[in-house]
């Protein structure tokens, strides 16, 4: 009789169950109709099964998004868990689609599923990558733009994980400011 170690068949559970969403910009449909839930997972193995199966962000056409959110939170400002929140925003230039986009997005996913922000990870709602001709964007969304301690911790760890140089800064913006902005830029509530 062969003894099989549990290590070889038990999947590694995640702290949270996550949902991966896909947005494709079809101007004949409403924003919400363009948003589709791809799949949910709650183990490390199922995360990789999904990630290995889908297109890299850099292969998506302009106007598409991937969003990874905790189960029960929809990837939109209006969701109860997002509406008082904001995001750490990484803006990429055109060269970075080839150099950094896929690497940064995978690192973002690993931060989320691995709970990289310790107890402040509870403040994380999800993350979004936007593929856009004028420049791609990646962001981690958190629940409460007043929670300075959590937001700055998350921002510092995130910046380090992405390997962004000390001398460069990233900014955190509230969704309410993003939604009501008049120009092309939103003011930063926090910077690290």
């Amino acid at each position: 009789q062969e003894i099989v170690s549990p290590e070889s068949y038990i999947k590694h559970p995640l702290q949270n169950k996550w949902s991966l969403w896909f947005f494709k910009n079809d101007k004949t449909k409403t924003w919400q109709a363009n948003l589709r839930l791809i799949s949910k997972f709650d183990t490390v193995e199922d995360f990789w099964a999904l990630y290995n199966h889908i297109q890299l962000s850099s292969n998506l056409i302009s106007g598409c998004d991937y969003s990874l959110f905790k189960d029960g939170i929809e990837p939109m400002w209006e969701d109860e868990r997002n509406k008082r929140g904001g995001r750490w925003l990484i803006t990429l230039n055109k060269q970075q689609r080839r150099q950094d986009l896929d690497r940064f997005w995978l690192e973002t996913l690993l931060c989320l599923v691995g709970e990289a922000f310790d107890d402040y990870s509870d403040e994380v709602c999800g993350a979004v990558v936007n593929i856009r001709t004028k420049g791609d964007k990646i962001a981690i969304w958190t629940a409460d733009f007043d929670n300075r301690e959590a937001i700055t911790h998350i921002g510092r760890v995130y910046k380090e994980r992405l390997g962004i140089p000390m001398k460069m800064t990233i900014g955190y913006q509230s969704h309410s400011d993003t939604a009501t902005k008049s120009g092309s830029t939103t003011k930063n509530k926090f910077v690290v």
Binding site: H12, P13, L14, Q15, V44, E45, F47, W48, Y51, N52, E107, L110, V113, G114, E115, A116, D118, D119, S121, R161
Partner: peptide, 18 residues
């Protein structure tokens, strides 16, 4: 309770395992 934390090295190793 305890939080289930995985570092990037562990997560990346899981990618190639069967």
């Amino acid at each position: 309770g305890t939080r289930i934390i995985y570092d990037r090295k562990f997560l990346l190793e899981c990618r190639s395992s069967p």
